[in-house]
Design a protein around this nucleic acid. Structure first.
Lengths: 208, 208
DNA sequence: GTCTATAATCCGATAGAC
DNA sequence: GTCTATCGGATTATAGAC
């Protein structure tokens, strides 16, 4: 048994019953060892929980960086928003964990590694927006301000959906997400963006 | 000692140490009684926690309904967004609790009373948007869709701020909130809204 | 309504043998 | 690295006396 076996099952327990369900004793029992054995791999419970949180950020990062395969700033921008949504819908509990308050993890303030991971998500959106501004697709506003607005909207909408406030299935929510996103972008886009979107919507309407 | 004494101190404990800090034993000790006495007022812990959650929604509602004293749809719209922000900044832990996942409260799914309270918040924003559309301040879009977009943005931005991701003090964040909000509204406003806003901004610039 | 006493679990963590 | 044994604590909740 190694550190990775523990982490894998800790994630499993978290997905099933939330953070409070991840206990050293339960973990040991399920892995067929006794609790003290775990302390050879993790100094304490917090340390182990932080690895679970890191796994959440790692998964999120995977979905985001997929957007870098897009061939234009416009495509990478759209794919970033979609990748973020995909992550949230595929791994709602990990998504929730990314934004969990510090005391939920048993710590007063977040360790630097978590703060840095979260900042990385913000920076990724930032880069996508800057690209679009430079390409003349978005108005020449402050990229950081614009990306914060978009990030806030995406996160808020996903939170509200995952909370169960919207009575719609996942497929409908996907449409709502993009339509609402467009309402936000609309006031910040350039005529060029609008023209490209129109062509895209027409192509989609013809094929779908 | 009555149910209200218990609730008041339960809120106090929650504000100090989060939900897990609200235990029947600790509650009893602080109130100068023994734990079994509490069970004469609350059937179990969950029931008591739900009262704390209700208190969070009650406080939020107070801040929102204050917006109804505005004399025009435009004013009530702005005051609703500001009241929501005020609530979040004055009572961040209660704000957090409003959106806490069900398992945090020790329940599998939210009881109807919580769901209804949350729906009430959505409906309030809905009404503010509809008023503005009817008054010609916002474009004639679907009021429910528009208010969801605005709610998502406000909630997301506040969440990100309260999470500690934005390195700015409260006063700066207030500006960010309104400026970001304006970027969202911009694409949905009418020329009339824009004209009124311009006058308002000028007046503010002259006085501030 | 409040008490004492107690049942029945769960937890994190450590000492020391092997 | 894993075990046994254990410390020292927490929790919800109930039975039954007053």
């Amino acid at each position: 048994m190694n550190r990775n076996d523990i982490l894998t099952h800790a994630c499993e327990l978290y997905l099933q019953g939330g953070i409070e369900a991840v206990s050293m004793r339960r973990l040991a029992r399920d892995l067929g060892v006794t609790a003290p054995a775990l302390y050879k791999h993790y100094g304490n419970r917090e340390e182990m929980l932080l690895d679970v949180v890191s796994e959440a950020y790692r998964l999120c990062g995977e979905h985001l960086t997929g957007a870098l395969s897009g061939r234009t700033p416009r495509e990478r921008f759209r794919m970033a928003g979609e990748g973020y949504l995909d992550f949230a819908l595929k791994h709602p509990k990990f998504y929730e964990m990314m934004y969990a308050p510090a005391h939920t993890l048993g710590v007063k303030i977040f360790p630097d590694v978590v703060t840095a991971r979260m900042a990385g998500v913000g920076q990724f959106f930032n880069d996508r927006v800057r690209e679009c501004i430079d390409a003349g697709l978005l108005q020449p506003l402050d990229a950081q301000e614009v990306s914060l607005t978009l990030w806030a909207h995406a996160h808020g909408l996903i939170s509200i959906y995952l909370r169960g406030c919207l009575h719609m299935d996942e497929e409908v929510f996907r449409s709502v997400y993009f339509e609402s996103g467009w309402r936000v972008i609309h006031g910040m886009a350039t005529p060029q963006y609008e023209a490209e979107k129109e062509l895209e919507d027409m192509a989609e309407g013809a094929s779908g």
